[in-house]
């Protein structure tokens, strides 16, 4: 293979006039972080809500929650992003569709919301499993003390359910970060998109993707480390699971 290695490429100016190639990648990282952060918040808020709804005694609410989960987890993320980005504006009334199409940073909003909703179905599944894993008597004890259903969830069930599902939630957080790369298909210039741009400008494909690989690795390893610390910080003394 005749390849011209050049690790100094990162300090060379990029043809976009926005600094060095390293700056180009870091700009991409910023969009990745922003998209992942918003997507994670959306996934957590909607996932927790839908997860709770699916454990309530109302048949209608449970069905609605199930429908949400099945919709968002059974369609590939790529197809979902295309739906929100290309199809939705055409289905809306003309003015609303126009507003969507001309929205500044449309690919960022669509990417973050799209990835967030996709991930919410997975979080919902775990929140439901977490609540279900608690002994039935816990909810009964809360109810018997006079707590309302909302209070029982807030003070009794959710604090334990979230502790139990923290390890799988960590995986979902990492998936959220990684899935933001799919948003390059709707034009979001996040890390992977910037890496491809660097490769096209400079032909240093190995350097570019080595850098992207390391950045993703360090980012997700740091998140894993932080989540482990969180797990330890909220661990309940003397609590043994599996009752």
């Amino acid at each position: 293979m005749n390849y011209n290695w050049n690790w100094g490429i990162f300090r060379e100016p990029n043809p976009e006039g926005s600094g060095t190639y390293l700056d180009l990648l870091l700009m991409g990282l910023n969009w990745t972080l922003a998209t992942a952060a918003l997507a994670a918040v959306i996934a957590l808020v909607f996932g927790a809500t839908i997860g709770v709804i699916r454990t309530l005694p109302s048949r209608g609410l449970v069905l609605a929650g199930d429908a949400w989960v099945e919709f968002f987890r059974n369609i590939p993320l790529l197809v979902q992003l295309f739906l929100w980005y290309f199809v939705l504006p055409e289905l809306l009334p003309k003015a609303a569709g126009m507003w969507l199409k001309t929205l500044p940073n449309a690919s960022f909003w669509t990417g973050a919301i799209g990835v967030g909703l996709f991930m919410s179905s997975r979080v919902a599944e775990q929140v439901k499993a977490g609540i279900r894993s608690l002994p039935r008597g816990q909810a009964m004890a809360g109810t018997a003390l006079g707590l309302t259903t909302a209070q029982t969830y807030r003070y009794v069930l959710l604090p334990m359910a979230f502790r139990i599902i923290l390890p799988p939630l960590t995986s979902e957080l990492l998936n959220t970060v990684k899935n933001t790369s799919v948003a390059l298909t709707i034009g979001l210039m996040e890390l992977t998109a910037r890496t491809r741009a660097m490769q096209e400008y400079s032909f240093q494909v190995f350097e570019a993707f080595t850098a992207a690989t390391l950045i993703y690795l360090v980012l997700n390893a740091s998140l894993t480390f932080l989540m482990r610390r969180l797990e330890r910080a909220v661990a309940v003394p003397g609590y043994v699971t599996g009752k």
């Binding site: 004890a141 809360g142 003070y155 502790r163 309940v236 609590y239």
Partner: peptide, 14 residues
């Protein structure tokens, strides 16, 4: 207003 005690105690572990 009605106290209840369960077989498995059901204290809130956290």
């Amino acid at each position: 207003r009605i106290g209840m005690v369960f077989q498995h105690f059901e204290l809130f572990p956290h």
